[in-house]
Simulated assay, not measured.
Amino acid sequence: MSPLDNHPTHRDFFLPDLCNAQALLLLVVLAELLALLVSALQRGLLPFDWNFFSLASLFCLLVFLSTAALLCPLRHWFATLPLIAASSLIYGSVLLLVGGYTLGGQWLLGLGTVQGPRFDHNTLLLNLVVAALVAGIGLRYLYLSWQLRLRQQSEISARVEALQSRIRPHFLFNSLNTIASLIDEDSRKAERAVEDLAALFRANLQDGAAISHWRQERELCERYLRIEAARLGGRLRISWACDELDDNTPVLSLSLQPLVENAISHGIQQLPEGGEIQISARQRNGRCQIGVRNPLPEGADRHQGNHLACDNLRHRLQALYGDEGKLKLQQNGGHFEVTLEFPVSRAGESD
Rank of each mutant, 00 (worst) to 15 (best):
M1G: 01
S2K: 00
L4T: 00
D5Q: 00
D12G: 00
L18G: 00
N20V: 00
Q22D: 04
L24D: 01
L27E: 05
V29M: 07
E32D: 03
L37K: 02
L37W: 09
V38H: 03
V38L: 09
S39Y: 06
G44S: 07
F53R: 09
S54N: 08
L55A: 14
A56M: 12
A56Y: 03
S57G: 10
F59C: 03
L62W: 03
F64H: 03
F64N: 03
S66A: 03
A68F: 02
A68E: 02
F78M: 01
L81A: 00
P82D: 00
I84P: 00
I90W: 01
G92L: 13
G92M: 03
S93H: 05
L96Q: 04
G100A: 14
T102W: 09
G110Q: 11
L111T: 12
G112K: 13
G116F: 14
G116V: 13
R118M: 13
L124A: 11
L124W: 15
L124N: 12
L125V: 14
L126M: 12
L126P: 07
N127S: 13
A131H: 11
A135N: 11
G136P: 08
G136S: 10
G138Y: 10
R140A: 12
L142G: 09
Y143V: 08
Y143E: 09
Q147R: 11
Q147S: 08
R149Y: 08
Q153D: 12
S154G: 15
S157D: 13
S157P: 05
A158T: 11
A158F: 09
E161L: 13
L163M: 08
S165L: 11
N174Y: 08
N177Q: 12
I183H: 07
E185A: 14
R188N: 09
E191T: 13
V194R: 05
E195R: 06
E195M: 06
A199T: 01
L200P: 00
L200T: 02
N204T: 04
L205I: 05
D207C: 00
D207F: 02
G208P: 01
A209P: 02
H213I: 02
L220W: 02
Y224C: 06
L225G: 04
I227L: 05
A229P: 01
G234A: 14
L236T: 04
L245F: 09
N248Q: 15
N248S: 13
V251K: 09
L254I: 13
Q257F: 10
H266Y: 14
L271Q: 14
E273G: 14
E276K: 10
I279C: 07
R284H: 11
R284L: 14
R284N: 10
R284T: 12
R284M: 10
N285D: 15
N285V: 14
C288Q: 07
R293W: 04
R293L: 08
A300P: 04
H303T: 03
Q304K: 05
Q304E: 11
G305F: 08
N306G: 06
N306S: 10
L308Y: 04
L313D: 01
H315W: 02
R316E: 02
A319N: 03
E324P: 01
G325R: 01
G325D: 11
G325Q: 05
K326A: 08
Q330D: 07
N332L: 13
N332M: 11
E337I: 04
E337S: 13
V338A: 14
T339P: 06
L340W: 07
F342G: 06
V344F: 10
S345G: 09
R346D: 15
R346I: 15
